[in-house]
Design a protein around this nucleic acid. Sequence first.
DNA 1: GCAAGCCGCTTGCAATTGCAAGCACTTGCG
DNA 2: CGCAAGTGCTTGCAATTGCAAGCGGCTTGC
Lengths: 127, 127
Amino acid sequence: MAKIDAAKLGEYIREQRMAAEISVRQLARTAGVSNPYLSQVERGLRRPSAEILARIAAGLRISAETLYVRAGILEEREGDRAVLLAISEDPTLTDRQRRALLEIYAAFQTENSAQQAESHTEEEHLA
Amino acid sequence: MAKIDAAKLGEYIREQRMAAEISVRQLARTAGVSNPYLSQVERGLRRPSAEILARIAAGLRISAETLYVRAGILEEREGDRAVLLAISEDPTLTDRQRRALLEIYAAFQTENSAQQAESHTEEEHLA
DNA sequence: GCAAGCCGCTTGCAATTGCAAGCACTTGCG
DNA sequence: CGCAAGTGCTTGCAATTGCAAGCGGCTTGC
């Protein structure tokens, strides 16, 4: 698990806030945190807890998970892994259905790999 | 976002630790936290940070997300929603493949609903 | 000019987090 | 018996988190 880089996190929060064109005080009010603290967080002087991150995310209207990932609390779910996990853990599927979906997904992955290999081969010809 | 219930979280951690048949000190050492602190966490006297939770989870060989959910940091991803989201967000799939998977998944869901309705009908006959 | 409002930031402080040192107890061995 | 090793917990403390009070700077309207 990556160590939280407060500076990077703060930068990201500031970027998002500026993109939303709101001031520190406005975001702080919306998020329900003190504005000096938010300012400190943006400048990387503090490492906010998950609860504060969730509040800031709500104020920014982005998912809390986005900030958790930035903060190093959560790992980004890689695309293919996310699908495999989600299907495996879905309690609404029967075993047969689960297996079928996983096989189809694997077939698509193979298909995409073959296409990528083909692309590489063409590139080699050109090079 | 639910407020963290330190007592419930602590109970869960203790349960998992006892299920694994390891002592407070053993888990603390494996997890890289102090054993008195772990003891306090288990008794609901402290609210550990996400970082500590991740360490404890690693020591227990469970996913950090499990403890995050218990701690109220993260919300549980509902089964069917997780699959839909994962497929939608998978960058390794082409549009065609994505659509196909979503349709198959939907078909399975319909199939399962039909079977559930059938079960209910049989139950009504018996009742 | 002044007052009011906004801006982001400084500073001191109370509460909390996580740890180190150590306690009392139990168990197994010589 | 005494000792060593293990058990979970108590306690005091340093560091950190998040806040309230307030600063200086800027803009706007009178």
